[in-house]
Amino acid sequence: MARRLSILKQPLFSTLNHHLIDYPTPSNLSYWWVFGSLAGLFLVIQIITGVFLAMHYTPHVDLAFSSVEHIMRDVKGGWWLRYMHANGASLFFIVVYFHIFRGLYHGSYASPRGLVWCIGVVIFLLMIITAFMGYVLPWGQMSFWGVTVITSLASAIPVVGDTIVTWLWGGFSVDNATLNRFFSLHYLLPFLIVGASIVHLAALHKYGSNNPLGINSSVDKIAFYPYFYVKDLVGWVAFAIFFFLLVFYAPNLLGHPDNSIPANPMSTPAHIVPEWYFLPIYAILRSIPNKLGGVAAIGLVFVSLLALPFMNTAYVRSSSFRPIHDKLFWLFSIDCLLLGWIGCQPVEAPYVTIGQIASVGFFFYFAITPILGELEAFLSSAKSSTRIN
């Protein structure tokens, strides 16, 4: 016993003990609080599989597609690594989207957790950039034309736009320098995500976890271990089953078949579609006919998310006690699903019009946030006064 206490006093072990074992956790957490640890798990899977794939991948426009096929056909277990990495990215985004929407519903961005939320938004942005660069690496048709279309959007930025595009391309067209740059950054950025995740976790543990009721639970907490690690373990097993069903039985379900065709600069695909987890943002981009306006709209998505803690005026966190926000949240969720569907449709009527309406609905949710808290407080006060009278 004395030896165990001595070990726990060591800096590394005491830190692990504080954050993973004795961490005081609200006693009423539900399974909706499992997505944070699941995101960490999938981040580890992506880094490990990515490192092993990089050992066999060749970042050259003439060899990249062939090297991916070499990994799939000739490297022992290579197909497994590649499918784990590709589908792991999809599962990673599914987990993070659930994590974000759970935070929106339960008001996890409200004070004092504003810093936790903002760091999470930065991690989300890094994830999108990393995944986009990874999508380019197989150098298939969707890879080539996707990077051509998206990077050329930077040319809409006044004064410095063309310079940014030239720097991204490493020249005057998408070519070998582009692929090398994207491969290098795709390898680097996950480690930045790890660093940001550690800061995110440290901030969370400083201010404490939110809970389903959204109330101050400082007087009703229990140690994370051995109670809540079981909850996380159940979530891990459930997602592991789904993950391996994808990897072994439907590995290409979430990918685009055109990316199995080598990149051809002389043949433009009939319809350029990014990976599914980019589709809502891609739909907002397409809904604005002006290129600069589309770029600004993408930036506004992340600005809106970052601004939520500062725009919030609600005195109650959880939507369980905010009937107006509860309905608005579910309408917003449906709107995001609609944007995802629009993002994979052709740019033609009526999809353009539907996308524009859905984009307005998306930003309306954030625009009404400062007003909603005051409105709910007024209605609650009026209702209380009516009951007293």
Score class of each variant (00 low, 15 high):
H205G: 03
G235V: 01
H205A: 11
P262C: 12
Y229L: 02
P212K: 11
V219K: 10
L233Q: 11
D258K: 05
K221A: 07
S217G: 09
A240S: 10
L245Q: 15
D232M: 04
L254Q: 09
W236I: 14
H256V: 08
F239S: 04
S218Q: 07
I241Q: 15
H256N: 07
P212Y: 05
L201I: 03
S218D: 14
L246D: 04
L201G: 04
I261L: 08
I222T: 06
A202W: 07
G208N: 00
Y225C: 03
D220Q: 12
S260M: 15
A203V: 07
K231M: 10
F239W: 03
L254F: 08
Y207A: 14
L246P: 02
V234P: 02
L253W: 10
A238D: 08
L253Q: 06
A203L: 06
Y229V: 03
N210F: 03
S218W: 03
K206F: 08
I215C: 10
F239T: 02
G208W: 00
P212R: 08
K221V: 13
G235A: 00
V237Y: 02
D232W: 01
G208S: 01
P262N: 15
G214F: 06
V199D: 11
P212M: 11
H256L: 06
L254I: 08
W236D: 09
S218I: 07
W236L: 14
P262M: 11
A203H: 03
F239P: 00
L253R: 11
Y229R: 02
N211S: 05
D220K: 14
Y229G: 01
G255L: 05
N216W: 05
F228S: 01
I198G: 13
D220Y: 15
V247L: 07
L233A: 09
H200N: 07
L204N: 04
N211Q: 02
P251M: 02
N252H: 11
L245H: 09
S209H: 04
I241L: 15
A223P: 10
L233E: 07
V219H: 13
P212W: 07
G235N: 00
K231G: 08
F239G: 03
S218H: 11
A203M: 04
I198T: 05
D220F: 14
G235W: 04
L253N: 15
G235S: 00
P226K: 02
Y229M: 01
L245G: 14
A202H: 06
L253K: 13
P251A: 02
V199P: 06
Y229N: 02
V237L: 03
I215G: 12
A263W: 12
W236C: 10
I198N: 12
I241H: 07
A202I: 13
N211R: 01
L253P: 14
F239I: 01
V247R: 09
H256G: 09
V230K: 15
Y249S: 05
Y227G: 00
I215M: 13
Y207N: 10
